[in-house]
Design a protein around this nucleic acid. Sequence first.
DNA 1: GCCAACGTTGGC
DNA 2: GCCAACGTTGGC
Length: 152
Amino acid sequence: MSYWLLKTEPAECSIEDLAAQPTKVVVWEGVRNYQARNFLRQMHEGDEVLVYHSSCKLIGVAGTARISRTVYPDPAQFDPESPYFDPKSSLDLPRWDAVDVVFVQKFSQLLPLDEIKACPALVDLALVKKGNRLSVMPVSANEWSSILELTN
DNA sequence: GCCAACGTTGGC
DNA sequence: GCCAACGTTGGC
């Protein structure tokens, strides 16, 4: 059982969108960075996930979710209509992967980035490391606990 | 909209 | 394999 943080632009897929799915499940598609993809490959069913809102007005962790299906080829890479289409991908040789994520909870208050930055227990979180642009990153068990404590 | 930081591409 | 140019990310 591992912990992860997934970035999402709420204009694309917010925690509210996750909660609004009839099945609460979404395909986590569109990861187009090899390091992030390799983290997707390490995920197990049941792993817990922080859902982080980026590139928006209220930046921070908005809630949690869970991995409901482990890695498989991202269908968007094959779809010419998709913004995530990759002409260098083929069914034989897919480059990109997806997982399925199921909504767990929306925090009563979003945990803002500056509070995460101000928390001494979270200085090693990849999210707050200088220049970090990973959209999928591991979170330690201690960091997970610290984040949940901050939301109380 | 700015721009620092980083990843990718492609010529050599 | 180097590295300049370019594109993207994402906070501010």
